[in-house]
């Protein structure tokens, strides 16, 4: 058996990683959305459709700034949370309103609310607001 020796010094170094100063931190927003469709939609399909539409609307350059990620999606209630950069929030919301179908199911994305923390966003989705 090979033992990887981690010196105390290395371990200490890892712990001492300095966090970014507040000015350089990413400012994120969490968009709570609901998919209104006849059939059930899967999380993967939602992610793909969002990615395709946002990319087609704001391009690769805009995508790099916005960095949209589906953080949470509940397939039962069809509600979820999308993480976006603060500066590109409006453009991403505009792109979401242009979605017409997800995996050949006619649907539309209804934006319920935008929050500043993922905790609050998840709470609102689970509570059903």
């Amino acid at each position: 058996m090979v033992h990887h020796r981690v010196s105390k010094r290395d371990n200490k170094k890892e712990k001492l990683m300095k966090p970014f100063p507040a000015v350089l931190k990413e400012k994120k927003r969490y968009v709570i959305f609901e998919i209104i469709s006849e059939k059930r939609v899967k999380e993967d399909a939602v992610k793909k459709a969002f990615f395709r539409e946002i990319k087609s609307f704001i391009g690769i350059n805009g995508m790099a700034d916005a960095a949209p990620t589906v953080v949470y999606f509940d397939e039962k209630s069809k509600k979820g949370v999308l993480k976006v950069d603060n500066r590109a929030l409006k453009q991403v919301e505009q792109a979401l309103s242009l979605i017409r179908e997800i995996s050949f199911n006619k649907c539309f994305v209804h934006i319920i609310k935008t929050t500043g923390t993922v905790k609050k966003a998840k709470e609102l989705v689970k509570r059903g607001d």
């Binding site: 209104i36 469709s37 919301e93 309103s97 017409r100 006619k106 209804h110």
Partner: peptide
Amino acid sequence: IYEMRSPEQ
């Protein structure tokens, strides 16, 4: 109905 959007949108 799938072509409808909310006032905010």
